[in-house]
């Protein structure tokens, strides 16, 4: 029989607070180590691209942020589903914690994409590439959830509303992605050539295999920091948090 104790423990803010405190240094340090290795490797020890020269090196930041931006939305939607099904307070906090971090990383993905676009396509923003447009829509989905959180005076109502809209977004995201893909393929002009990630050379690929988990861990660390703020806010009247704060002081 499966042991569900870990799941029930997750429901306790006190246990989660302690666990985050124990894990956070490790997650943060390993994220920074992986990112430094990957970035130094990618910037200094990979050969330049035969067509793009050195400008392609931004993929070591751009691709991981784009991957994590989408994964973050799904993590948020799972938190929303848990909150709706089991009414777990901690899931609401996770939803609140992930939204701003996800929005920030999506913005970073958009920014690095635009910076990469200038030398490659000759323009910061190109509507012909479906991925840029989809990322922008994803950014707006994150902003909508943050706006919904802020609009409710009553935190519980805001959390439930955000959970519902996060789930609606989960159903919609594949449809949005596919439709934008379809739209851009219909309007594509032949003058622009896209670089395909799938045709990347192996030696350019290896640093990416280091920075992707690095950005995942960085994302996790940022969410943990946000979670700690959320727990402190919702448990501000509880005895254990007061004791913790006195011990820290």
């Amino acid at each position: 029989m499966a042991n569900w104790q870990w799941f029930h423990r997750l429901g306790s803010p006190k246990w989660l607070h302690g666990t985050i405190n124990r894990w956070l240094p490790w997650v943060l340090v390993s994220a920074l180590v992986l990112l430094s290795i990957g970035v130094v490797w990618g910037l200094a020890f990979t050969p330049p691209d035969y067509k793009q020269g050195n400008s392609f090196r931004i993929i070591y930041i751009h691709v991981p942020t784009a991957v994590v931006a989408l994964a973050g939305y799904y993590a948020m939607a799972i938190a929303g589903a848990v909150s709706i099904i089991w009414r777990m307070k901690v899931a609401d906090m996770a939803l609140r914690a992930i939204a701003p971090v996800g929005a920030a990383i999506t913005l970073l993905g958009l920014f690095t994409g635009a910076v990469w676009g200038k030398p490659t396509w000759g323009a910061y923003w190109v509507w012909e590439d479906a991925r840029l447009t989809s990322m922008l829509v994803l950014f707006f989905l994150y902003l909508g959830i943050m706006a919904l959180h802020d609009a409710f005076q009553n935190r519980q109502g805001g959390s439930r509303a955000a959970a519902i809209i996060a789930l609606v977004g989960t159903v919609n995201i594949p449809i949005i992605y596919k439709s934008v893909d379809w739209w851009s393929s219909l309007h594509q002009s032949a003058s622009i050539k896209f670089t395909e990630e799938s045709t990347i050379a192996a030696e350019m690929m290896y640093p990416l295999m280091v920075t992707i988990p690095g950005v995942y861990l960085l994302f996790a660390a940022a969410v943990m920091l946000q979670m700690r703020v959320q727990i402190a806010h919702s448990e501000r009247h509880s005895r254990w948090l007061e004791k913790y704060a006195i011990n820290r002081a």
Binding site: V137, G144, A147, L148, V168, G169, N172, I176, S179
Partner: peptide, 12 residues
């Protein structure tokens, strides 16, 4: 803010 992103497929 909430619904315009979801309207993308319809407009396309």
């Amino acid at each position: 803010l909430l619904i315009l992103p979801m309207y993308v497929p319809v407009i396309i």
